[in-house]
Nucleic acid binder design. Structure first.
Lengths: 155, 155
DNA sequence: GTAGGAGCTAGAGCCGGCTCTAGGTCAACC
DNA sequence: GGTTGACCTAGAGCCGGCTCTAGCTCCTAC
């Protein structure tokens, strides 16, 4: 546990979290921080390592699609301290579901995309092969010019 | 291949794609359709089954995070017909990467979330068990009230 | 013949999540 | 003592992707 009380400026925090200073102020305003951001001389924001740690969690939650209101709610719960762990768990489980759901949907989408990539690869392969003296074969690719579809995609 | 020339109103297409009529007009305006949407008597939009098929693909691409400009570009290529399959393949591959990348990132995020869910489950489990006459054990849960991190937390 | 419902266009509005601007303070350096 | 650079606040702006509104045209049914 080193340097827990490290004191960082907004610029430093921006640098090490990858967030912009704008975003940091915005997050603060949105109530995403667990403890109110302290102020140093001249009213400047002063961040601790804990703040950065919390932000790191926030960034991950955001990256996985947690909306800001949920993030704020989570922060509220943590801020309120012990006693609401059930609620926190519920919130995290909800998000867990959101993420697995999204991953499932993406996997499905990926199937189609992979399939189409395969079609076009085959098609181009074939074209290449036809360029050499060999047999030719009229080829229906992935997305035919639309009016002639019907036989097109779908595995 | 049944009823390829089926003629559908915007309302019907909205109903069977799940898009709103607004979105359909918006997509048209954005050039997402491969063939210009035909018009029936009174200037009303008339859609074919092909249009619906194409929309289904669009919906999947959108759901996997393809931006509208890319979708439009793809439609442009398909509209231009044979000869640009290489470009289409490139576009699809790019999107394929985007999606796998996103899935990877989500999987990472999910790790954290799963971990935290586990922590809170354990914590609550323990609390439950402590309610019965048994041994107690001070536990560092998930997100301590932030300023007191490192040490204290849960009584 | 009039009421209802679906459609049309052009354009405004909204939401989430930042991002940027204007105008100012403050401390440090040359 | 002037410039620079990091920071401050309040509030406007932007982007993507829709969504909604206003005001109109049709068609059908009562």
């Amino acid at each position: 546990m080193a340097d827990v009380t490290a004191i960082l400026s907004i610029g430093q925090v921006a640098e090490r979290t990858g967030l912009s200073v704008h975003a940091l102020r915005f997050y603060e305003q949105e109530g995403v921080f667990v403890s109110p951001v302290r102020r140093g001389p001249g009213g400047r924001r002063v961040y601790s390592q804990d703040d950065v740690d919390w932000l790191t969690v926030c960034i991950i939650l955001r990256a996985s699609g947690m909306p800001l209101p949920a993030l704020r709610r989570y922060a509220d719960l943590v801020r309120d301290g012990a006693g609401n762990e059930g609620e926190r768990l519920a919130l995290l489980r909800e998000h867990h579901e959101r993420v697995t759901g999204q991953m499932g949907r993406l996997a499905q989408c990926l199937d189609l995309i992979t399939f189409k990539v395969g079609l076009y690869e085959d098609l181009l392969d074939q074209d290449r092969r036809e360029a050499e003296p060999d047999q030719r074969r009229p080829s229906g690719g992935g997305d035919v010019p639309a009016s002639a579809a019907g036989t097109s995609a779908r595995p």
